[in-house]
């Protein structure tokens, strides 16, 4: 399959040491197109859509910011903490620059947790990209569904 220049550039930017030290692909050896299309199928199978996922992720980011750097309980069910670091990160698709924020969310009832970044929200919303398998910031759609109860 022919790879578009945009995807080729994004794939290069996702390698370790380009934008982040660890990169965005983990140890996933699939092409960027395959990673995205397989996750799109998974999202559909789980009866979710990207708009709902990104709006939920934004909701917990905004609620977590109210903790002013400390964890706080959201809607009596989730423990949320937002860490902010100095600086900004460009999207590997080169269409946005975001602040460096990490959101930790724990569903206290289910004792399940995960974390994501400002950039994760944009990558999911705009590019349907959850990162490659094995990447530290990879978000599994099934885990999102379980933890955020979408």
């Amino acid at each position: 399959m022919k790879i578009s220049p945009l995807f080729k550039k994004a794939y290069d930017n996702m390698r370790p040491g380009r934008i982040t030290m660890e990169g965005f692909l983990g140890d996933d050896e699939r092409t960027l197109t395959d990673i995205i299309s397989e996750d799109e199928k998974e999202v559909k199978f789980l009866k979710m859509d990207f708009e709902i996922i990104s709006s939920k992720l934004k909701y917990f980011l905004n609620e977590g910011l109210k903790g002013l750097g400390e964890p706080l309980t959201v809607d009596k069910k989730w423990l949320v903490r937002v860490d902010e670091a100095r600086g900004r990160l460009p999207c590997p698709f080169e269409d946005k620059i975001v602040n460096k924020k990490t959101v930790y969310v724990k569903n206290v009832e289910k004792n399940l947790d995960f974390f994501y970044s400002d950039l994760s929200i944009h990558l999911i919303e705009a590019h349907h990209f959850f990162e490659g398998k094995g990447s530290t910031f990879r978000l599994e759609p099934s885990l999102i569904k379980q933890i955020l109860e979408i």
Binding site: G87, P90, K100
Partner: peptide
């Protein structure tokens, strides 16, 4: 420098 020279911290 907070990002080790990757141009992401602006320090």
């Amino acid at each position: 420098s907070a990002c080790g020279g990757r141009g992401t911290c602006g320090a």
